[in-house]
Design a protein around this nucleic acid. Structure first.
Lengths: 336, 336
DNA sequence: TAACACCATCGAATCGTTTCGATACACATC
DNA sequence: GATGTGTATCGAAACGATTCGATGGTGTTA
């Protein structure tokens, strides 16, 4: 069942059917109605491969994401899918493993599928302006840090201010009287990662309050409970007199909390904890974990919005920086 | 840059380039090398729209899933993506909202994109054998229950035995001496949902041990912490003398645990809790939650395996039922 | 050396759309 | 009646690949 069949059955030309289906050009009401009824009756769906081939452009959006199952990302992905779907476009998801070049992978997909647009989510990108420009289709970087200085006019982005957010969390703990504050995050051997940027905020807060920065208080760990658990255990075993922990993700915080509690210490009695992201599970932890909450759903929403604006012809790239929010629940307390 | 350009630059015919790229037909080693070098040099990627159009088949796999952000699904999706990607195929993800016809949605995608295969994940399907057969491409139902009796030869599936699994959890709690055991799950107004099937196992265990089934002990709630929290609160306020809760998902269990703990009761001191799924967060809850663990990653893996077997021409549909596992951690205790 | 097989390669037709230039008709204008 | 203006429609070319039947060259065999 193809457009030719529909044309024949409807008793019109091929191009008329095409014009009806695409709402392009003029078609008399009678003809339009007749064609549509035939389409419906035969359950005809235009072949997008043929359409895309001819148009040298498809309506497919691709999402390149680092770690689908990260709960914070999973939430954003859900919203991205919803919003993209709402606009009538199919969504392709590709997970970028560590060490693969995200832009190159996207480039391949773009050529192969004549993509409509791309959303990149998560991670640290080590690409030059030139590489971004080569993509040739609209794209948005969501919660991504870049290693190279790239001219802001070359890309759009959606993010929060990691330095400020971490500063906010650390300052909060300091304001409660804590001096021995740990920081748990992932520090790959790269510059300007999320971990590094949050470390900057952590350091800045310490400095401003006259607390000397001690690397022994910082632990490297992946963004998952098991790593947070192990890192916190290591930290506790150093006997540094830690009274507070700031984790660069709620997943880490949950693991760290488990380490604290299972060591016989209490939260927030002995150790205060602040996480990052604002995932639902952290709220339902016991005690409820304080956190720096990112508006993930809105960030996803705006990412798609920007992308479709660009697709619609908008030429100015946008950079939306969302405000993170310190959410106080039950995992921190005042000391001394 | 298309196949014609590559042919011209390489000094060969179009069909020769095609044969080189597809490893079909005979091509002399010299020619092959020359073509490949030109391809590499110009970063040529075949246009899959043209290819799919000609072949009337694409290599795209679609995943139709209910609730991307459910952590158990998120984990499976991650593995599905990995496995599909490993086989060189792009993955399309579509979220099926409540109330939309999954098969019809897939049908549309299949016609539109000439899909290679489809994986359906999660939910309860109310489709006849006829509808399944109409899909016309290989597909697998993963963690899905069906309302209508469908001839097993008409579809492939990957699942666990929900009745037995729930029976296992409930029996465990009974064996610890509990009599007043709640059950928390989602009971939509449909038959044979996961909630209903697990309820069956719950009832069966009660019955076998001479405990009378009381609907007051069963609460309807969505598979998320906030709903688990509310449901457990409702349950506790009934003053039924509950000593144990069995939740149909870890997310529910986490919410329920929070409700218990924040009511001043202890786990497992006052109330024992068993969840379902085996997500990482439940392990790092404090106390670590007992659960019925499903081997999600393997289930995803096998789903993709079955799908590609079918694509490769395997005609026999397979039904793989995985064994769930009772994982005892720290959220249940013996009473009396 | 004629006949034949085999290997490497080529070109044309084809997949199902979109789109542009052409056409055909009706009606108004001079 | 010649010309012009719109409106509704059509057909053919094109998008970039695959694939089949055809072709030409080389080597083998009788």
């Amino acid at each position: 069942m193809n457009i030719k069949d529909i044309a024949k059955i409807s008793g019109v030309g091929i191009s008329t059917v095409s014009r009806v289906l695409n709402n392009s050009g003029v078609v008399s009401d009678a003809t339009r109605a007749r064609v549509l009824s035939v389409v419906k009756q035969h359950n005809y769906v235009p072949n997008s491969n043929a359409r895309n081939l001819k148009k040298t452009q498809s309506n497919t959006i691709a999402l390149m994401v680092k770690g689908i199952s990260n709960p914070f990302f999973a939430n954003m992905i859900k919203e991205v899918e919803r919003q993209v779907h709402l606009r009538g476009c199919p969504l392709m998801i590709q997970q970028v493993e560590d060490g693969v070049d995200e832009i190159a992978a996207a480039m391949q997909l773009i050529k192969e599928k004549n993509l409509y647009g791309v959303i990149f989510m998560g991670g640290t990108y080590d690409h030059s302006e030139e590489e971004f420009r080569q993509l040739g289709v609209p794209f948005v970087l969501t919660t991504i840090t870049t290693m190279k200085e790239v001219d802001p006019s070359a890309f759009s982005s959606v993010s929060i201010d990691d330095v400020t957010s971490a500063y906010k969390a650390t300052s909060y703990l300091i304001s409660l009287g804590h001096r021995n504050i740990c920081f748990l995050a992932r520090f790959p051997f790269m510059e300007n990662t999320i971990g590094n940027r949050r470390l900057l905020g952590y350091k800045k807060a310490l400095e401003e309050h006259g607390i000397e920065y001690d690397p022994a208080f910082v632990e490297d760990c992946e963004y998952a409970p098991s790593f947070g658990f192990a890192a916190a255990k290591r930290l506790l075993s150093k006997n540094l007199g830690v009274t507070a922990m700031f984790a660069a993700s709620d997943a880490i915080a949950i693991g760290a909390a488990k380490a604290v509690l299972s060591s016989g210490l209490s939260i927030p009695g002995d150790v205060s904890i602040v996480g990052f992201d604002g995932i639902e599970m952290a709220e339902y932890y016991h005690p409820s974990l304080d956190t720096i909450s990112q508006p993930g759903v809105e960030m996803a929403h705006v990412s798609v919005e920007i992308l479709f604006d660009l697709i619609a012809g908008e030429t100015a790239n946008r950079h939306v920086v969302f405000e993170s929010m310190l959410v106080k629940r039950g995992s921190s307390r005042k000391v001394n």
